[in-house]
Amino acid sequence: MIYYIIYTSKPTGEITPETLKDITSVSEKNNPGKKITGMLLGVENKYLQYLEGPEENVNELFQKIWKDPRHQNVTQWIKGYSKERVFGRWSMGSWMLSYSALKKMPALADLKKFLDDPLNNDLQSKKFMSMMHDLLKMWIEEEAEH
């Protein structure tokens, strides 16, 4: 079983594509040794991150993020176990989204709702996991087009 955590936070500064690239670059170096994979989304002025891997390693990384002065209002919404990795292809992927872009992506229609009013229950967790799978699929398709 793979342990996962989904959290949101607000950056202390502005989220830019460069910010996400820098975070992703560091994660790509550090995460493989800890068997952590995941996805970091920058949506308007929030981070949304899905971390997965060995429970001890994911919790250790989450505590590091929670203490990181670049994050504020760090909130863990969902944690649990999955039979398989959602983002096994990347040590950490990242994507910058806007609410207007989300409106054009029917598969992610519930993402804004989740960011605005997250619920910590099994139904919400399953919806979110489905959205993350859909996001991964769209991301792969988008990268294949370029």
Rank of each mutant, 00 (worst) to 15 (best):
I2L: 02
I2N: 15
Y3C: 11
T8Y: 12
K10M: 13
P11V: 08
E14S: 07
T16A: 09
L20T: 09
L20F: 06
K21I: 02
S25K: 12
V26H: 15
S27R: 09
E28T: 05
K29W: 07
K29V: 04
K29I: 03
N31V: 04
G33E: 08
K35D: 03
K35N: 03
K35S: 14
T37A: 13
G38I: 00
L40M: 00
L48G: 00
Q49H: 09
Q49N: 04
Y50R: 02
L51V: 00
E55K: 01
E56I: 02
N57H: 13
N59D: 14
E60H: 08
E60T: 07
F62P: 02
K64A: 00
K64V: 02
I65N: 11
I65K: 12
K67S: 15
D68L: 01
P69L: 11
H71R: 06
H71W: 01
T75C: 06
K79A: 09
G80E: 01
K83L: 11
K83H: 15
R85V: 04
R85G: 06
R85F: 00
F87E: 05
G88S: 09
R89K: 13
S91L: 00
M92K: 09
M92V: 03
W95N: 03
M96V: 08
L97R: 03
S98T: 12
Y99P: 06
S100D: 13
S100A: 14
A101C: 06
A101W: 07
L102W: 02
M105H: 02
P106A: 06
A107V: 02
A109T: 03
D110C: 09
L111N: 12
L111I: 04
K112H: 12
K113V: 14
F114M: 05
D116F: 04
D117K: 15
D117H: 15
P118K: 06
P118Q: 05
L119T: 01
N121R: 07
N121P: 07
D122Q: 14
D122V: 03
L123R: 07
S125K: 10
S125L: 04
K126I: 01
K126F: 08
K127D: 00
F128M: 13
M129F: 10
L135I: 04
L136N: 10
W139K: 10
I140F: 05
E141S: 03
E142F: 10
E143S: 04
A144Q: 15
E145A: 13
